[in-house]
Design a protein around this nucleic acid. Structure first.
Lengths: 249, 249
DNA sequence: GCCGGCGTTCCGCTCAGCGAAATGACGAGC
DNA sequence: GCTCGTCATTTCGCTGAGCGGAACGCCGGC
């Protein structure tokens, strides 16, 4: 995280030093994590604070509002999310379960929208957060309709066992994906987290590639995946159609 | 947008040159907007692209996924949004109208969550977007429970007429805010956009300051604000209580 | 009182960053 | 066909923005 010592990469190293759990970090902690000398970090942060990219608090530094606002302008996420919002809302209303929208990125999926009610289990997913593709409903839905290189990358990166039910054999994953291609729906039963299951469907662009996926998540022992599959698939097809009409940005 | 010619401020100038409508910009367009010489912009963007802060597309540059992910780590927004999600979901389920969560920033409000169904009017608000405080439901709810300096700033910045019903007289705004303080609920009837109304309630921290506001938005001629007011207020009170228990970050 | 860690400031060296100018690639107009 | 205009990209020698070791003042714990 240090080779290129340009101003920019240092500033970005500072920003990415913030991890999901951190609310605020001290200057000293930041210099420790990044290896950037204290005066340098201090100067860079002062400039970032001037833009509200970070904010100075009585006892530390935290990521600022301007960063949040900028991030929301990312066009892919924005266009998709706005188009998807009504479909996700419908799905939530119909099922009262936690609903997700995710996009692929490398071997992971990144969540870009989530509607979580009070009824469902505490899901660890987070808007802007990542999960491996091979062991999540949205991930498998995306993999099944992605160019084959993507799957190769995922397998090459290794399938690590996260729960007793995680699929770690590439052959089994292949079979699962083939089945998903047939049905148009992916299921996941405690493959990423014990006690949680989900049903997901891919959102396809005009060329048949998966650009996103929608899922419903709930308690593994209560979620009736067979009953919910058509709902998720319908929502995904509806969103696909809207995106085809107003080409996604 | 040019005075300090540091690397950092130039990079940020480039990023902030993207406006909500832009999906992607060409290098030439960026140099035009920012006044940054082409080779310089080219170099900076190349480095930003290496971090996925921006992405290179066949014919331009767009804001990238890493920026989105980083923005989601901003702790204030994150903590609030996660705590608020179930309350907003409840509200949406109960009313089927568009639901917002917003925080104050200077004389504006910034939306940090939105659940929009299919029934409501097309609302121009956007997660990460801004609206003036004085003419929106959430804005008035926040102003009513903000330190008085905030109101002074807002008035000093000027109340511009956005629709025939916008309140532009500081005296009337004062009266409105006093009434909001009494009721604990703010209403807005076509003050920011013709045809749209909303009901909002503030989320207060332990010290009685408004840290956020929740609103329900719908068609001005159909939204029964009297009926919805208790619902919004209840949700806001519930969220306030949760935040007091798990102090907001 | 002493010590360790914190944030902040100073200041002279130096190399990262700069940008005018040149290059190549593409498409529209004639 | 050639000629522009506009685009992105590369080069390269100059220089001042950025650097960071060192020193500072402050605080809380032992």
């Amino acid at each position: 995280m240090d080779p290129p010592n340009s101003v920019l990469s240092r500033a970005l190293t500072l920003l990415t030093a913030f991890r999901p759990g951190d609310t605020e970090l001290t200057l000293a902690e930041l210099t420790r994590r990044t290896g950037i000398p204290k005066p340098t970090a201090h100067r860079l942060l002062a400039e970032l604070a001037g833009w509200n990219i970070v904010e100075r608090t009585p006892n530390g530094i935290r990521l600022g509002m301007a960063l949040f606002e900028l991030g929301q302008l990312a066009p892919l996420q924005r266009g998709l999310r706005e188009a998807a919002a009504p479909f996700l809302a419908d799905l939530f209303e119909a099922t009262h379960e936690t609903v997700h929208l995710a996009v692929p990125d490398g071997i992971d999926v990144v969540y870009i929208h989530k509607i979580a009610g009070r009824r469902g289990p505490p899901v660890r997913s987070r808007v802007g957060g990542r999960m491996p593709a091979y062991c999540t409903g949205v991930g498998k839905a995306l993999l099944a309709f992605a160019p084959p290189e993507r799957l190769a990358e995922v397998v090459a990166a290794g399938l690590t066992r996260r729960t007793p039910r995680t699929v770690v054999a590439p052959g089994l994953l292949d079979a699962d994906l083939a089945r998903i291609r047939e049905r148009g729906v992916a299921e996941e039963h405690e493959e990423s987290t014990v006690g949680i299951a989900c049903v997901a469907a891919p959102v396809l662009d005009a060329d048949g590639r998966a650009v996103a996926a929608i899922s419903i998540t709930g308690w593994a022992n209560r979620l009736d995946t067979a009953r919910l599959a058509p709902a998720v698939r319908t929502a995904a097809l509806g969103l696909s159609r809207v995106l085809r009409a107003h080409p996604a940005s």
